[in-house]
Design a protein around this nucleic acid. Sequence first.
RNA 1: UUAGAUAUACUUAUGGUUGCGUAAAAGAAAUUUUAUGAGGAAAGUCCGAGCACCACAGAGUAAGAGUGACGGCUAACGGCCGCCGGGAGCAAUCCUAGGGAAAGUGCAACAGAGAUAUACCGCAUAAGUGAAAACUUAUGUAAGGGUGGAAAGGCACAGAUAAGAGCGUGCCAAAAAUAUAGGUAACUAUGUUUUUAUGUAAACCCCACUCGGUGCAAGUUAAGGGGCGUUAUAAAACUACUCGUAAGUCCCAAUACAACGCAUGAGCAUAUUGGUAACAAUGUGCCUAGAUAGAUAACCAUAUAACACAGAACUCGGCUUAUGUGUAUCUAAUUAA
RNA 2: GCAGAUAUAGUUUAAUGGUAGAAUGUGGGCUUCCCAAGCCUAAAAUACGGGUUCGAUUCCCGUUAUCUGCU
Length: 114
Amino acid sequence: MLKKENRLTKRKEFGYIYKKGKNAYSKFLMLVYVPTKLKKIRVGFSISKKIGKAHTRNLVKRRLRAIIFELIKNNKLKTNNYIFIANVGIDNLSFEELKNQVMYLITKENLVNE
RNA sequence: UUAGAUAUACUUAUGGUUGCGUAAAAGAAAUUUUAUGAGGAAAGUCCGAGCACCACAGAGUAAGAGUGACGGCUAACGGCCGCCGGGAGCAAUCCUAGGGAAAGUGCAACAGAGAUAUACCGCAUAAGUGAAAACUUAUGUAAGGGUGGAAAGGCACAGAUAAGAGCGUGCCAAAAAUAUAGGUAACUAUGUUUUUAUGUAAACCCCACUCGGUGCAAGUUAAGGGGCGUUAUAAAACUACUCGUAAGUCCCAAUACAACGCAUGAGCAUAUUGGUAACAAUGUGCCUAGAUAGAUAACCAUAUAACACAGAACUCGGCUUAUGUGUAUCUAAUUAA
RNA sequence: GCAGAUAUAGUUUAAUGGUAGAAUGUGGGCUUCCCAAGCCUAAAAUACGGGUUCGAUUCCCGUUAUCUGCU
């Protein structure tokens, strides 16, 4: 799982990234990212009430975090600020399908460390 | 066996790899170690409390809102337990906002002669017209007809009568009063007397009882402190000192998207006693989430029904709704012995 | 988290407890050489589940969905 220093917490930071960031889309996910001066990767997740009740939203968030954690651990992500935004229908995906969605977005934008 | 009713229990455990929140300890620090970490509904926010602020000397009335058989339980309740009445079901059992319609007002479509009193057809008498059949008018009549959710208690009988009717008699039903018996009480059973009054109060209303308002996004803590010494200046004043304001500079403490509120409580577990029960009393033991883009995960193995519904956000007591599996007891029907 | 409002044809909206009404859209027909406009006509709804009442869109209770406000 992600530690606190790898998470985006403040509302200002989210607003900054939404304004300045580049966007990438897949069917169930949207990625916004922006380069940082810090040497840490920081990630935020936005999952709205449209997706489901509290329980399902938590489940989606946890799975996304687990995926991102593995990537960070293996040093595969470039150091940027990321926000992942979930679309309707994401609650029906399994863990593997979610992982494919994330990898598709990252490879599309050339954010993978060689 | 099938269909149904009620009550109740659990709703994960162990191990491996990689990880998260909180607390404590160690360390100069990075960090490490240990402990601990969502529910039966955490949900809906429908009731009731604590707690905080606002209003108020204190209390009451009006308005408004809610509740409504009786007895008990509870901190309190619109909740729970017991019991009574009413309703549903073959039954087990379940449901029940269950005071007042004889204080007043409103409403009751369509149908029907007539809707809270009524004479359309019918029955009878009298008068008139007519050769007669019959018709018209007046009076009496609720037995018969059809309508409706409801037609003024119901059924039977004979008599009285011009024709008829609770007008009378017998049986039955309901309401009120009263007596006896049972029950703490609501009420029940039986007898006597009187009465037969449409329904609707989840329409207005009357009676009794309860309620000040807002919700932790409540609310509390502040927008600096100190030193240096230079310059300028409103006002005042004869002038000066002093004080204040603005600018400069240094140090400290912060920076609200923060901290507190915020986790020992009408607490949990267990045993005994009292009570039909809800529940209460006493003894013993325990301390058990506290986040703020918001912690329980990812991948596996074994057992298992645990693969369902579903994530604490100030805290409790209920109610309602969603949902997986098991157990016990009871009822009805069918089949077999 | 707390507080509040609403739900009626595909869409926008009416209806005092008594046969759910309009507009617009949709389908069919007429008109036209064809289309549009116009005329005629048909289908189509009280969010869901209970209760009160002779009778409920309306009154009461619960559920669901949508919307709004409060750092």
